[in-house]
Amino acid sequence: MTLTLTVPPGAKVRVRITNENGETTEIEVEPGETVTITLPAGSTVRVEVEVVDPDGRKRTETFTLKP
């Protein structure tokens, strides 16, 4: 399973991925970048995406991906 994120110009994104064992991976994606994350097959993962807009506003979306 893959997750692809494209960050709009001016925004910053931090992604936290937590697996079933509670292990967390965190990455930051710079403005204008596209990143593809390969998620472990057969695992349920929690993905938290934090977006910081150019004006400093933050918003966070959290979702769970199941196999």
Rank of each mutant, 00 (worst) to 15 (best):
residue 2 T to E: 07
residue 20 E to P: 05
residue 30 E to C: 10
residue 45 V to G: 05
residue 31 P to V: 13
residue 45 V to R: 03
residue 18 T to D: 11
residue 56 G to H: 00
residue 23 E to Y: 08
residue 3 L to Q: 03
residue 35 V to Y: 14
residue 51 V to R: 02
residue 48 E to F: 02
residue 65 L to V: 13
residue 64 T to K: 01
residue 55 D to I: 00
residue 55 D to E: 02
residue 35 V to F: 09
residue 42 G to I: 11
residue 29 V to A: 03
residue 32 G to V: 15
residue 34 T to N: 09
residue 49 V to F: 02
residue 62 T to N: 02
residue 59 R to C: 14
residue 6 T to I: 13
residue 55 D to T: 02
residue 19 N to A: 10
residue 12 K to E: 14
residue 6 T to W: 14
residue 35 V to N: 07
residue 44 T to F: 11
residue 60 T to A: 00
residue 1 M to Q: 03
residue 45 V to C: 05
residue 6 T to E: 12
residue 29 V to W: 14
residue 32 G to W: 13
residue 67 P to R: 02
residue 51 V to M: 05
residue 32 G to Q: 10
residue 16 R to C: 04
residue 21 N to V: 07
residue 39 L to N: 08
residue 14 R to C: 09
residue 25 T to K: 10
residue 11 A to H: 03
residue 4 T to L: 13
residue 62 T to V: 13
residue 44 T to W: 14
residue 39 L to T: 07
residue 62 T to F: 05
residue 1 M to S: 04
residue 23 E to F: 10
residue 21 N to H: 06
residue 49 V to M: 03
residue 8 P to Y: 14
residue 24 T to W: 07
residue 51 V to P: 00
residue 63 F to P: 15
residue 47 V to R: 00
residue 66 K to P: 15
residue 19 N to E: 11
residue 54 P to W: 03
residue 19 N to S: 07
residue 11 A to D: 03
residue 55 D to M: 03
residue 52 V to T: 14
residue 46 R to H: 06
residue 48 E to A: 03
residue 2 T to K: 08
residue 11 A to N: 02
residue 47 V to L: 02
residue 19 N to F: 11
residue 62 T to W: 12
residue 43 S to K: 12
residue 17 I to R: 10
residue 18 T to E: 11
residue 41 A to Y: 13
residue 10 G to T: 03
residue 24 T to G: 11
residue 32 G to S: 13
residue 34 T to K: 10
residue 27 I to V: 08
residue 22 G to V: 11
residue 61 E to W: 15
residue 16 R to M: 04
residue 4 T to G: 08
residue 50 E to W: 01
residue 13 V to Y: 00
residue 1 M to L: 10
residue 22 G to N: 09
residue 13 V to R: 01
residue 38 T to G: 10
residue 67 P to Q: 06
residue 21 N to C: 14
residue 18 T to S: 07
